[in-house]
Design a protein around this nucleic acid. Sequence first.
DNA 1: GTCTATACTTGGATAGAC
DNA 2: GTCTATCCAAGTATAGAC
Lengths: 216, 216
Amino acid sequence: MAKPGIKTKVGTTVSTGVDVTREALVHAAIDALKEEGFAGASARAIARRAECNQGLVFYHFGSVANLLLAALDEVSESRRAQYRAAVDGAGSALELVDAAQSVFEDDLDAGHIAVLTEMIAGASATPGLAPEVAARIEPWHTFTATALRRALEHGPLAAVVEPEVAAHAVVALYLGLELLAHLDGDRSRALALFDRARQLATFLQMFGTTSEEETQ
Amino acid sequence: MAKPGIKTKVGTTVSTGVDVTREALVHAAIDALKEEGFAGASARAIARRAECNQGLVFYHFGSVANLLLAALDEVSESRRAQYRAAVDGAGSALELVDAAQSVFEDDLDAGHIAVLTEMIAGASATPGLAPEVAARIEPWHTFTATALRRALEHGPLAAVVEPEVAAHAVVALYLGLELLAHLDGDRSRALALFDRARQLATFLQMFGTTSEEETQ
DNA sequence: GTCTATACTTGGATAGAC
DNA sequence: GTCTATCCAAGTATAGAC
């Protein structure tokens, strides 16, 4: 349907593609999900934000649900790029907590995670949407598991904590914290938690490497 | 408006009140939130489930949002009663984890927590709804903090973990786990987590009481 | 307290002109 | 590719009969 074969990407990153309205719709959908929630993210509301006609939603995406999934894709991928950068710069568990808090606050300020939670909650309303949303969460599990594995491999918890299991807890906790903070606008409780995590990381770092010298 | 002064509660718990349709609407709203989500929980959909007329929603509750809040109240209070019973029966941290897993699975089977997450996510769509939902979550924080305080007070973590801060983490984690498990229908990852928590509780129990003999 | 009927609004989706 | 116009379904809410 849309985009009949002509890929417009020239270099590695192109901000001004030819599909101007298509991208405008995606970003309008993101904003609508953030500010009005799944129930408020209608084709008309999104088109109003994108300052274009409502019918273009269906021309470009076929349905509102597809546009919403495209919005989730966009947020999920761009956020993961940022997370990767933040995590790659963290050499220790302590720095990992700092990085986590940094992206947590960025997310909360910009409402990125609201897009995800709205889609998760909204998935119940639209048949067939749930597996699509679930598939887009899966990369976060592997990403988190990798980050945890790196952070824990030389510490005392390596033998106790399975990265895959802990990753699920981290993802769930992160979602829950964003959900609550986004609801009542109070992030102080979440920040107190990051403080505790910092103390825990510092404490655990006192126990040195278990098997070999650290190379970081 | 509704219920002009006549309270029908005779004993402490009465299941067959006079407001039959009112209660039918509340329970239909609960089911609608569980199965169709916030976006699908319309006056018409709820009335269809309650097998009554759509106008009765407005007669009894004034608006759909009010009915949805009544549904949240009902679930929140009845669940808290069950949680309290489960937690009161738990004397040790290990038993507390067992109790938590038990209610977690009950909630997932019945979809109780979906009602809450749908209302949280849906709060963005309806002006003024967010603070109402937030107010109904607050009791869960105090409940969880109390349970944690009791479970930790004689253990080695008492000096390290602040119950209020940890309670927020527990509530957020619980919400996130239910959100994810409800989305993809896979609870195995959450159950693996409870297994780990059980091992941790057993491990911590090896360090005895810190200040005085345990009276349980 | 419950029903029918209705007014009004919004939303999804399509057809056809440009 | 974008717009106007339109159809139809579904939603909120109210009025009035019973």
